[in-house]
C-alpha cells in the first residue's frame, strides 16, 4: 500500500447503537473546523452517510462491482455537509452472499480508484457494521488501514458485549500492524448508572471513555430532517458534545491495545452490575452505607 494519506479512523459498535449518527456528527464537526473528511459506510444497509447528504440516494461501491462497469469516483461518492466526501461500501441483501467479503472488495475498489490520493483527506472515518462478526468486518482495522478504532456503546449489555468483541479483534490484529484502540464513545446516556457502568467496563479492560453523548431529542429531530445536529442545530449543547468528541480525536492520538474480558469474566461482571442496578432501583441500603 502506498503512503497513507490522512488519519484513518474506524468506528465500530453494535447495530442500532447510534454509530452512524455519531460518526456523521463527528465528520460534520471535523468539516466545520476546516478539515477535509471522507466518511465510508461499511454496512450493507448503506445508510451511514444519509444525514450528511440530506437523505439523497447514493450508488454504493459494490453496486459498481456487481455491474462490472468502469467506475469513476464521482459515480460512487457525494459531497455532503461541509464538503465531507460520502461513500457507501454497500453489500448484499440480508441472507445472501458474504457482506464481509464485500467490505474487503469495496476497500480494494476504493484503493484502485485512488480516492485518498485524489481527495487528499485529513481524516477518513470508517463506519463499520455492528459486531465484528467475521474476518471481513475486521478489514478496516487490519493491514494498517485505520490507525485507531473507536467503539460506540450504550450501557446495554449486548452493546458492551459487542465492544468487548471489538477489543478482541484489536488485540488480535494490533501486534501485526492493525489499528489500536482510541477509546470508547458512551452513547445514549440516560439512566443514572450508565456512565458508571461504561466507566467500569473501560477500567476493567484497560481502555478509556473519550466522551459521553446524552440521549437527546435534538438528535432524533435532526435525523428526521436528514441532517446532523451540527448542521441542523449548531448552537445546541448536543452539537457541542460532538464538537468535543471531534476535538479529542484530533488532539489526542493515544491508542492502546485493550484487555478484553473472556466469556466468564464478562458474564460475572454483568451479573455484578445487574445486582447493583437492582439495589439502586429497589432502594437497598447496605449496612453503614447511610451513615
Amino acid at each position: 500500500m502506498s503512503e497513507k494519506i490522512g488519519k484513518h479512523i474506524a468506528i465500530y459498535g453494535k447495530g442500532g447503537i447510534g454509530k452512524s449518527t455519531t460518526t456523521s456528527n463527528i465528520s460534520a464537526a471535523l468539516a466545520e473546523s476546516g478539515y477535509r473528511v471522507i466518511q465510508i459506510g461499511c454496512d450493507p444497509k448503506s445508510d451511514s452517510t444519509t444525514i450528511l447528504r440530506g437523505g439523497n440516494d447514493l450508488p454504493t461501491v459494490l453496486d459498481t462491482l456487481r455491474e462490472q462497469s468502469r467506475v469513476r469516483l464521482d459515480d460512487i461518492s457525494a459531497i455532503g455537509f461541509g464538503g465531507v466526501l460520502c461513500i457507501e461500501a454497500g453489500g448484499p441483501v440480508p441472507g445472501v452472499g458474504c457482506a464481509g467479503r464485500g467490505i474487503n472488495a469495496a476497500v480494494e475498489q476504493l484503493q484502485d480508484l485512488k480516492v485518498f490520493e485524489e481527495f487528499k483527506p485529513d481524516f477518513v472515518l470508517y463506519d463499520v457494521l455492528g459486531d465484528v462478526v467475521c474476518g471481513g468486518f475486521a478489514v478496516p482495522i487490519r493491514d494498517g488501514l485505520a490507525d485507531r478504532a473507536f467503539v460506540v456503546t450504550s450501557s446495554d449489555f449486548m452493546a458492551v458485549f459487542a465492544a468487548n468483541n471489538l477489543f478482541k479483534a484489536v488485540t488480535k490484529y494490533a501486534p501485526s500492524g492493525g489499528a489500536r484502540l482510541g477509546g470508547i464513545i458512551a452513547n445514549s446516556i440516560l439512566a443514572p448508572y450508565a456512565t458508571s457502568l461504561i466507566d467500569d467496563f473501560a477500567d476493567r479492560t484497560g481502555s478509556r471513555v473519550i466522551g459521553y453523548v446524552p440521549r437527546s431529542l435534538t438528535v432524533a429531530q435532526s435525523e428526521l430532517y436528514g441532517k446532523t445536529v451540527i448542521e441542523a442545530v449548531p448552537q445546541s449543547e448536543q452539537a457541542q458534545v460532538y464538537r468535543d468528541l471531534a476535538k479529542f480525536i484530533v488532539e489526542d492520538e493515544e491508542a492502546i491495545i485493550p484487555r478484553p474480558l473472556n466469556g466468564p469474566e464478562l458474564k460475572k461482571w454483568a451479573r455484578e452490575w445487574g445486582d447493583k442496578i437492582f439495589e439502586v432501583e429497589a432502594g437497598v441500603v447496605h449496612e453503614m452505607a447511610s451513615i
Binding site: L62, L65, R66, Q68, G91, P92, V93, V96, G97, C98, A99, R101, G102, A105
Partner: peptide, 10 residues
C-alpha cells in the same frame, strides 16, 4: 467471481 461471493451465486 467475486461479485457472486459478495452478492450470492444463486
Amino acid at each position: 467471481r467475486e461479485k457472486h461471493v459478495v452478492f450470492g451465486g444463486g
